[in-house]
């Protein structure tokens, strides 16, 4: 039970923060694009980079989840 639950929790909880972060990022970027559409391309590139950095937090959670799922935590088995 714990073997199944722990990777799920790891990725599930770990994805909350980046999810909110990416949402805020895109919101800000879209507002900025709406205000000055002439720099939309530049904003889009930076938005994607920002999303990428926020996403890497979720990636760390994914790494932990994968480790738990396929390698297992010491003392868990």
């Amino acid at each position: 039970m714990v073997e199944i639950l722990s990777p799920g929790l790891a990725i599930g909880l770990g994805a909350i923060g980046p999810g909110i972060g990416i949402g805020l990022l895109v919101m800000g970027a879209l507002q900025a694009m709406g205000r000055n559409p002439e720099v939309a391309g530049e904003i889009r590139t930076n938005m994607i980079l920002g999303i990428v950095f926020a996403e890497s937090i979720a990636i760390y959670a994914l790494v932990v989840a994968l480790l738990l799922l396929f390698v297992g935590a010491p003392g868990l088995q």
Binding site: V52, S56, L66
Partner: peptide, 17 residues
Amino acid sequence: FAKVISLSFRLFGNVFA
């Protein structure tokens, strides 16, 4: 090191998932 981990696991994680 974080660069290596995030670069590799981002790509791997997205495609694998």
